[in-house]
Simulated assay, not measured.
Amino acid sequence: MTRIDDTFARLQASDKKAFVSYIMAGDPDYDTSLAVMRGLPAAGVDIIELGVPFTDPMADGATIQLAGQRALDGGMTLEKTLQMARDFRTGDTTTPIVLMGYYNPIYSRGVDAFLVAAKDAGIDGLIVVDLPPEEDEELCIPAQAAGLNFIRLATPTTDDKRLPKVLTNTSGFVYYVSITGITGAAAAQATDVAPEVARIKAATDIPVIVGFGITTPEAAENIAGVADGCVVGSAIVAQIADGKPVEDVLAFVKTLSDGAHRA
């Protein structure tokens, strides 16, 4: 049982939906992003997705691309991202952390060395968007052997033929991408999401969390209401990009988590 598994068990026992928030490590700088991260649990965040900045983030829209560029310009690296997790863990040993990013920095570090470092830093799960199920031997299976959840994305184009392959070796939760395209590109609609979530849940017992296109407390409530929870990323990152003080960013996050938890 990972912290992710424990969190979903606790939420389900309380008949609550999960609220997951994404931030980019090192955006706009190390200290500010760490301060935001440390405040997320008190703002109602159940699981933290921590973005690893990368030079070619093909799944991300402009908001998160720019966040990654700001982080890279400030000297952020994979190792510093892991250090950020270690720093967070000095004050919080229970909130799950999921690293979200791309395979190149992990490959460059070396899979075995990365997994040891990630586990030591208190990472609970990985989302690596450019490694399909056909490449499970590369990272997914070694990660799970090391005690890390490997979280897979399903999308509106994941048909019934492809879905079993996507679900194979997936653990922690399934991340359903509510729209086709990149992050921050359109608004998620519960009426479109509900039948897709039901289709996935018919094929797996793993929780299904919905992300992309959720920007308001109302949207968080509506989407969480048809799934096991929701993820918000771009809307939070945009607050940071606007230079909002940490306390204002966290107050905004609280409105979103309150919406998801009302579902």
Rank of each mutant, 00 (worst) to 15 (best):
N169M: 02
Q83L: 08
G229W: 07
V253T: 12
L66W: 01
D92Y: 08
P245Y: 04
I223E: 06
Y103N: 12
L115P: 03
T93D: 13
D228Y: 11
Q12D: 14
D120T: 14
L153W: 07
F8Y: 13
F54Y: 13
K161P: 02
V231K: 11
G39F: 03
Y107K: 15
Y107P: 00
A260M: 06
S178T: 15
P164A: 07
A59L: 00
N149E: 12
R162M: 00
K119V: 07
S178E: 07
L66Q: 05
A198K: 15
K17A: 03
L153C: 07
A13L: 04
K244G: 07
K165P: 00
G243M: 13
V197D: 05
P41H: 09
T63Y: 02
D112K: 15
Q83T: 10
I4D: 00
F212L: 08
A113Y: 02
A224R: 09
L99M: 05
I151E: 01
Q83Y: 05
D87P: 10
L78Y: 02
S234A: 07
K119N: 03
R86P: 02
T94W: 06
T2Y: 12
D29I: 06
K80I: 04
P96R: 11
Q65I: 05
T32Q: 09
A238W: 01
T216H: 03
R152S: 05
D27H: 08
T155N: 08
T215P: 08
A13M: 02
D159M: 05
N169W: 01
G229S: 10
R89G: 14
T183D: 11
D159E: 05
K17M: 04
T180N: 13
D6S: 09
E137S: 14
K244M: 13
K17G: 05
L126Q: 07
D258S: 06
Y176E: 00
L163Q: 08
I151W: 00
T180I: 10
E134D: 11
P156Y: 15
D130H: 10
D92W: 09
K119R: 14
A118W: 01
V226K: 06
Q69V: 01
P28M: 11
R70Y: 03
I200S: 06
K161Y: 05
P164I: 06
V98N: 03
G213M: 01
D15P: 03
G172Q: 08
V249G: 01
V253I: 08
D27Q: 04
A238L: 10
A42P: 14
T32M: 03
L256P: 11
G172E: 07
P133C: 09
I240Q: 10
E218K: 12
I123T: 12
A71F: 03
A194F: 08
G51Y: 06
V193L: 04
A194C: 09
M76H: 09
A154W: 01
S33L: 00
T204D: 14
V111T: 10
F88E: 06
I127Q: 12
V226M: 03
G110A: 13
I223F: 00
I236P: 09
G26H: 14
D124G: 13
L126V: 03
A154K: 07
A260E: 13
S33E: 04
P132N: 12
